[in-house]
Structure formats: structure tokens, C-alpha cells
Design a protein around this nucleic acid. Sequence first.
DNA 1: GTCTATAGTTGGATAGAC
DNA 2: GTCTATCCAACTATAGAC
Lengths: 202, 202
Amino acid sequence: MARTSGSYSELTEPRIRAEATRLFAQKGYASVSMREIAQAVGVQAGALYNYTADKQTLLFSLLETHMHDLLAHCPDFRNDETPVMHLEAFVRFHIEFHIARRDAVFLSYMELRNLTQENFAKIEHLRQTYEGKLRDILERGRVDQSFEVQDAKVASFAIIGMLKEMATWYRPEGPLSHVEISSLYWAMVKNMVRGGRDADRI
Amino acid sequence: MARTSGSYSELTEPRIRAEATRLFAQKGYASVSMREIAQAVGVQAGALYNYTADKQTLLFSLLETHMHDLLAHCPDFRNDETPVMHLEAFVRFHIEFHIARRDAVFLSYMELRNLTQENFAKIEHLRQTYEGKLRDILERGRVDQSFEVQDAKVASFAIIGMLKEMATWYRPEGPLSHVEISSLYWAMVKNMVRGGRDADRI
DNA sequence: GTCTATAGTTGGATAGAC
DNA sequence: GTCTATCCAACTATAGAC
């Protein structure tokens, strides 16, 4: 479909980002050509270069925006909250965000190795900032003995892993609502870190 | 390094498989060229085609062999064992296997989408057979109430996810032995599915 | 079984018209 | 801002000599 000059210009950039996110998530960065992205958007390949210096920069920009959004929306924790309350807020936020932005989340897990060394370092720093929040919660709970956690770092990896897996199997049309999923996962995480503590109290 | 005809023939095939596994795991299937594999092996690119019909078949063969090995070594469960014993055996086997074959495991998680539809279906079937074993253990424990699990399917995904994540962070030179890792993970999985049950008994 | 050489294709990126 | 046309590099896979 031929386009007259500039007729859709303010729509093109977000569409490029949306289609690139979708295609990279579906087929992998290295398997998607610039021509393929252009076709999904409805422009010619050369037009993409009005919006990105090159393919690598496009990937980096998608990941960077995603990580910044993740950190910006991540709940801050107040001092009057217990580690258990912190952890529940983190888990529920994480799941909601992952359901709402499945493709971007999937990208940020799968395509790190296709970043240049320099770009990787920047994204990795953001990722560690985010995952560090979880580790800090677990470490505080371990120290004040509200959690039964042997190794906060390994536990944080385990929790990240089990939540990450959701991005693989979750489908919006599936039988479980996001509230149900959130509660299922919170129950599992709570059991994992609380050991028998809740049972003692009831 | 030039080679005289046939001098290393019986070594070439396993070396191709080993280098391809390593490179695919490190950089991704689509980002690794046949030339690069050949160079790592120490032959010219054309020589690879004595051992594989094409690049896709090489990937499929690596994944298929890995999945068959996984299923072949997976412990069978005896009727006189409890769900808790089953689950511990499964978790410890899974971790040992993942530590021993890190690259192949990583490949089998990351490169499914680079298989043709037909090849994907075969690998996916093997994967579901393996993960079904875990789901069956959890479902039996849920029914006989030795586990406090709301949804065996979601719980199996969660456990697979947390164990899978280990392949991302584990390094042989790290501070934790595989026995320590195995015990850390088993403690977390047991807490997760047992809720307060162990605390009641002690 | 491996080599050299290459056919045939595809991809990233750019130039210049409009 | 987009299009058309194209350059050049890299890739898969094959052919034929040894």
C-alpha cells in the first residue's frame, strides 16, 4: 500500500516499536529482518531508518524503555511495612506487569545476548537494580526471622525464575484471571519463604 | 590447520555436536553460522555437511538427543514411595542433570522457536512428557493431601521455572557445590508444596 | 572425509528522487 | 517522511577435485 509523503508520520514510530516487540518476541531478534518489521508496519525498509540508527539500537531502545518502565512502576516500600507485606506487594506487582506486557518481558529475558557488550551492560545494570529489590526484601526477612530462607540470593533467583516462567505459559484467553494467577503465585511464594510459620499461628 | 583426508573422521562428529551446542547456547542458533562452527571444530564449512543435512537438522538432533537422555535418566518411581519422596528424587535429579549439561539444557529452553513446525512438535512432545512426570507427582500429592497445592499444573510450571533459572546463574567455579544447590532448592520446593505440614510434625 | 570454489539468496544499511 | 533502487557483506548449501 503506497503512502503519500508524511501522511502517517506521527503513528509510524510507535507502530515500529510495537511490531518489532511482537516479532522479536515471537521469532527472536536475529531471525527477524528489518524488511519484515517494515512490512508489518506497512512501510518500506528504508523508512525504518528515519526512526532508528540501526537494528541493534532498536532492540536496545525497546529493552531500555521496558526496564525503565518496570523500575518506575515498581512499588516503593514504606518502613512501617513488614517483609511479608513487602514481598506480597512485589510479587503481585511483578505478575500484573508481566501479564500486561508479555512480549516486552519475554524480550527482556531472551534477547540480552544479542545486545552489544556496551548495551548489555546498561540493561544488565537495570535488571540487577530490579532484582536487587527482591533480594533486599528476602534478606531483611531472613535477618529478622520472619522468613525461613537459607540463602536470600538463591531464593531471589528461584522466585524470579518461577514468575518468569509464567510469561511462557500464560495466555490471556486461558481459564485463569490475572487475579487468580497472582493469588496462586503469592500462595506458593509465601509457603516457600514462610516455611511452617503461618501454620503455627492459625 | 590443514587436515589430511579422513585422519580425524571418527572424532569430527562428536566435536561438531559439542561445538555447535556450545556456540548455540552462547550466541543463539540464528546468530551462529556454519562457518563459525566449522572453525571451532577445525574443518571447513563444507565438511559439516558430511554429518548433517543442514543447520536445522543439526539443531533438532542436538535437542532430540538431549530430551531422550533426559527422559532415559529420569528416575522411575516405585509404588511404595510417597509423593514427597517422589518429588525430592525428581528435584535432585533435575538439578544434577541441569548442572552436568548446562549448555544442552539452555539450548532446549531457548531455541524451541527456531525449530520448524514439524521438529518443534516432536521436541515439545518430549518436553511435555518430562514435565508431565512432575505434574503427576504434584497431582497425586494434592489428592492424598500430602501436598498443600492449589493447582498442580501451575505449581509444576512454577517449579520448572525456578529450577530452569538455575541454568542462567549457575557457574561451576561459583561458591556453591551442586550438592549444596540441590539441597537449597529441595528445601524451597518442599516448603512451597508442604506449607506448614512439616512444622506440625516437629 | 575434507578441501576449494562458488552458486544463489538474503540481509543491513544508504543514496537520491519526490 | 517515505519510496525506489542498490551496494556490499554474509550466509547456506552444493559441486567437484583430491
